[in-house]
C-alpha cells in the first residue's frame, strides 16, 4: 500500500466484501447498531494500519473477524466501566427501538454469552468451517467445537423455556 492508487482497490474490496460481516459480528456482541458501526469503522482503520499482515482473501476475513471480536469485547468492557445497563433495558431499547424488527430466533442467540453467540453466528450464518472459525478467533478447533456444542445446548434450553 505504498501507493494510494493501489490501496484504493484493496480498500474498496475489503469494504464491499466484508463490511457487512464485520458489522454483524459486532452487532452480535454489542446488540447496538450505532456502536457496531463505530466498531466497524475502527476495525477498517486498523486494517489500513495492518494491511501488510494480510496474506490472502481468506486471511483477510479471518483477521477482520478476529479484530472485530476483540474491538467489540474491549468496547463492552468500556461500557461496563462506564455504566451498568440491565439486560431488560438492552432487549427493550435496542432490539425493539433501534433495530425495530422482530427477531424471533436471533433474540435467543443474543441472550447467550458472547463466546457462544459468536461461534454460532460464524457457523450458521457465515457457514464457516470449524477450522476457519478456529483460525478467525484464535482458538483451537476443539475449543470451537466445545463452544458450539455448549452454545447449541443453551440455545435449545432458552427456546424450550420460551415455548
Amino acid at each position: 500500500m505504498d501507493e494510494i492508487i493501489s490501496a484504493e482497490n484493496f480498500i474498496n474490496y475489503a469494504v464491499e466484501t466484508y463490511s457487512d460481516t464485520v458489522y454483524r459480528v459486532a452487532l452480535n456482541i454489542t446488540q447496538n447498531p450505532h456502536d457496531s458501526f463505530d466498531i466497524s469503522q475502527e476495525v477498517f482503520i486498523r486494517l489500513v494500519k495492518n494491511y501488510k499482515k494480510i496474506k490472502n482473501k481468506e486471511h483477510l476475513k479471518a483477521w477482520l473477524i478476529r479484530v472485530t471480536v476483540n474491538c467489540s469485547r474491549s468496547f463492552m468492557k468500556t461500557i461496563f466501566r462506564h455504566e451498568i445497563i440491565s439486560l431488560d433495558d438492552i432487549k427493550e431499547s435496542e432490539l425493539k427501538c433501534e433495530l425495530n424488527e422482530d427477531l424471533e430466533v436471533t433474540k435467543f442467540v443474543w441472550m447467550l454469552s458472547e463466546k457462544y453467540s459468536t461461534v454460532i453466528y460464524l457457523f450458521y450464518y457465515e457457514e464457516m468451517k470449524i477450522s476457519e472459525i478456529a483460525e478467525a478467533l484464535g482458538l483451537s478447533q476443539s475449543a470451537v467445537k466445545q463452544r458450539l456444542s455448549r452454545g447449541r445446548e443453551k440455545l435449545k434450553n432458552l427456546i424450550e423455556k420460551e415455548n
Binding site: R24, L27, L99, V105, T106, Y125, R152, L155, K156
Partner: peptide, 15 residues
Amino acid sequence: FDVNQYKSENSRFTL
C-alpha cells in the same frame, strides 16, 4: 433452532 429464520433475520443487518 430455525437456521433459515436466523439467517433471514441476520441478513437484514447491513450497513
